[in-house]
Computed example of a mutant assay.
Amino acid sequence: MINRKAVRMSPDEKVFQFLDALLPDAESMRFVESRSPCVADADIGMPSLRVLKAPVDGNLAYLTIKAASPLVTMVDPALLRILYRSLRDDALASDPDALNDLGWLWINGRRVPFDSVLARRLFKLAYVLGSGEAAFNLGEQAWYGRGMCVNQDLAASYYEQAYERGVTCAAQALGRLHEKGMDGQAPDFAKATHWYRLAAGAAFASGEKCYGF
């Protein structure tokens, strides 16, 4: 007799079993030559932050950079499949960076067919696992209404959480929201200035480029 208690899955295991069924396997994955025609020209959102070791004066230092998945520029189908398999495996192992990067590819129709529903699910999983970039991307999806109704309040909430998680570009997005006025409200130039100053200060300090603009 089967011990049902012993084989019962945790909620997390169920989520990732569901994700395993949602994500196409590498062998059946269909890659596209360029952007999906149903997506606007401009990318939205941002890929995950990458932390690399680099030699500085003979010592190793950590550098944080924003780097898109190689799936964006790779053209060899065999290499694309290998790279996708690696990202998929990492995503199923609860890696928030891999989950976010796969979502970023699908929300922009980059090398994969556009799928806003799957992208949102991936972003939400990465967000729950602590990804600041995923919070930013959920804000972008709500702001641009890509695959959903535009929701500026929701966008602002996600952008604020992204900023709290270290994604300084979210400050620029919040400045834009308050400058234009949220959901029919009058512009709030004081709040816009506050967020723009935070964005400018962070960009000056790090020399980073903001994504999504």
Rank of each mutant, 00 (worst) to 15 (best):
L60H: 09
A156W: 02
V150A: 12
G145P: 10
N137K: 11
I82W: 09
P96A: 12
A171G: 03
D76P: 05
W106A: 06
L99Y: 08
N59C: 07
L63M: 12
W106N: 06
A68M: 11
A156T: 08
L174R: 02
Q161T: 10
I65A: 09
Y84V: 00
G103A: 04
L129F: 13
A173W: 00
L52E: 10
H178I: 10
R111K: 14
M74Y: 02
L125R: 13
A173G: 06
V167L: 06
L79N: 09
Y127T: 00
G132I: 03
A119Y: 04
I107K: 02
L102H: 03
Y127I: 00
V150K: 15
W106Y: 15
S69P: 06
H178A: 09
R110E: 13
R165S: 08
D90A: 15
H178Y: 15
D76R: 14
Y158K: 04
L71F: 05
L60R: 12
E179A: 15
R85E: 07
L102S: 06
A91H: 08
E179Y: 15
G58T: 02
P96S: 14
S131H: 03
Y158L: 09
M74P: 00
G130H: 03
G132R: 00
L174D: 00
A135K: 02
A171Y: 02
R81C: 09
R85G: 07
L154M: 15
G103E: 02
N137G: 04
Y158G: 01
K124G: 05
D76G: 09
G103W: 06
A173E: 01
